[in-house]
C-alpha cells in the first residue's frame, strides 16, 4: 500500500485555524509531487465541518474523538498523533508551526524516528534527496535541510504557503484510540478577549519608542482595528512595560511574517528587523530619514507619527 501524507489540523470554536489550512494546502502539494494522497487529522470534539476539508484537497479526515483527551498534554497528543500516522500508513506528517505544535511535533518525530524540519518556508525539493528550506538566524537567512530518514515531520511557518481551494469533499473516518492517562492538569486559561493573536495575524501594526508613551497607543490600536490587524511593539517598548511582553517582536521576541507590517516610531535595529523582515510588505513611519528601518521597507513616510497617523487613519476610514 502507498504511503500517504497526514496533516494535523487545529481547530478552535468550531473553525479550522487558517494556519492549519495553509498546512493542508502544503501537504496536498507535497502529495501531488509524490503522486500520493493527503489526509487530515482532527483531534477532539468540534462543530467545524469535517467533510469540507476536502475542498482543500485532502481525501480523508481522520477524526479522533475519544473522550477526555488533554490537548494541552504534549505527551498524550504525540502518542495519539504518532499512533494514527502509523495505523494509517502515513510517512510524512505536516503541522503548522503554531505555539502548540512546537510542543508536540518534535515528540512525534522522536516517536516515529522521523527527521524533522521546523519552520519550513517552501515546498520540498527532491533532486538530491528530500530537502526542505527553513528560516534560520531569526529570518536573516534560509537553510536547506536534507531529511535522511524515510519518515518525515515538517512544521510549516505561518503565512509561508497560500491556502488553495480545489473543491471536493472528504470522507470522514472516526478513530477511537484510548488516550494515555495525563499527569498535567490545566487550572486556568487567560485569553485576551477580542485580540487577534500576533502569531496568526496577516496584518500587524507595531509601535516603538517614538510613540513616547503607552498613552499614545490609541493611534496604533485604532489603525489596527480598522485594518483587522494585530498590534505589536519593539523590545524597548515591552521592556519599559508600555505594552505586554507577548507583543514584543524581533530576534528575541516573536518572529512574524505577515502580509503587511506597519512600523511606527521604530528605529529598525538589527534585532528588531530579524523578527519581521520576512513580512511581505513593510511600511515604515519615522521622523528620522536616517532610521535604518527605511532600508528594509517597501513604503516609507518620513514624518512625525503624531501628525501622520491621524491622517492615515482618516484615509483608511474613507476607503469604507
Amino acid at each position: 500500500m502507498n504511503m500517504s501524507i497526514l496533516i494535523y489540523t487545529e481547530h478552535q470554536e468550531g473553525k479550522f485555524k487558517k494556519n492549519s489550512l495553509e498546512a493542508i494546502s502544503y501537504g496536498v502539494a507535497i502529495a501531488a509531487q509524490k503522486g500520493i494522497d493527503a489526509h487530515a487529522l482532527v483531534i477532539g470534539e468540534t462543530t467545524a465541518p469535517l467533510p469540507e476539508l476536502g475542498k482543500y484537497g485532502v481525501k480523508k479526515v481522520y477524526h479522533l474523538n475519544t473522550a477526555n483527551i488533554n490537548i494541552s498534554d504534549t505527551k498524550t497528543m504525540s502518542v495519539l498523533i504518532a499512533s494514527v500516522s502509523t495505523q494509517q500508513n502515513c510517512d510524512t506528517l505536516i503541522f503548522s508551526n503554531t505555539l502548540s505544535a512546537k510542543g508536540i511535533a518534535p515528540r512525534v518525530a522522536v516517536r516515529l524516528k522521523a527527521g524533522m524540519v521546523s519552520g519550513a518556508v517552501d515546498l520540498p525539493e527532491n533532486n538530491n534527496g528530500f530537502c526542505v528550506k527553513k528560516n534560520v538566524f531569526s529570518g536573516k537567512a534560509v537553510t536547506e535541510i536534507k531529511v535522511l530518514t524515510s519518515k518525515i515531520v515538517i512544521t510549516l511557518n505561518a503565512n509561508a504557503f497560500e491556502v488553495k481551494e480545489t473543491g471536493g469533499s472528504a470522507e470522514v473516518i472516526t478513530i477511537d484510540i484510548s488516550a494515555p492517562a495525563s499527569t498535567i492538569t490545566v487550572t486556568g486559561i487567560n485569553k485576551i478577549a477580542g485580540e487577534i493573536p500576533l502569531s496568526e495575524a496577516e496584518k500587524v501594526v507595531s509601535g516603538g519608542r517614538g510613540l513616547k508613551g503607552p498613552e499614545n497607543w490609541g493611534l496604533i490600536e485604532e489603525l489596527a482595528s480598522l485594518l483587522g490587524a494585530a498590534t505589536a511593539c519593539s523590545r524597548a517598548v515591552s521592556d519599559a512595560h508600555w505594552r505586554p511582553h507577548h507583543e514584543h517582536v524581533g530576534q528575541t521576541g516573536l518572529a512574524i511574517s505577515p502580509n503587511l507590517y506597519i512600523a511606527v516610531g521604530i528605529s529598525g535595529a538589527i534585532q528588531h528587523l530579524a523578527g519581521v523582515n520576512r513580512s511581505k510588505t513593510i511600511v515604515v513611519i519615522n521622523k528620522d530619514p536616517e532610521a535604518p528601518f527605511f532600508k528594509a521597507a517597501d513604503y516609507g513616510i518620513v514624518g512625525d507619527a503624531f501628525e501622520v497617523m491621524p491622517k492615515i487613519i482618516q484615509a483608511v476610514k474613507d476607503l469604507g
Binding site: T143, I145, I282, K295
Partner: peptide
C-alpha cells in the same frame, strides 16, 4: 536524522518608496 545542505540569504529589498508626509 537530518543534515544541512546549504544556506541562502534573502534577496535584497527593491528599495523603499517614499511618500511625502503631507499626503499619507
Amino acid at each position: 536524522y537530518t543534515e544541512t545542505v546549504g544556506f541562502l540569504l534573502p534577496p535584497p529589498k527593491a528599495g523603499v518608496k517614499l511618500i511625502p508626509a503631507d499626503t499619507p
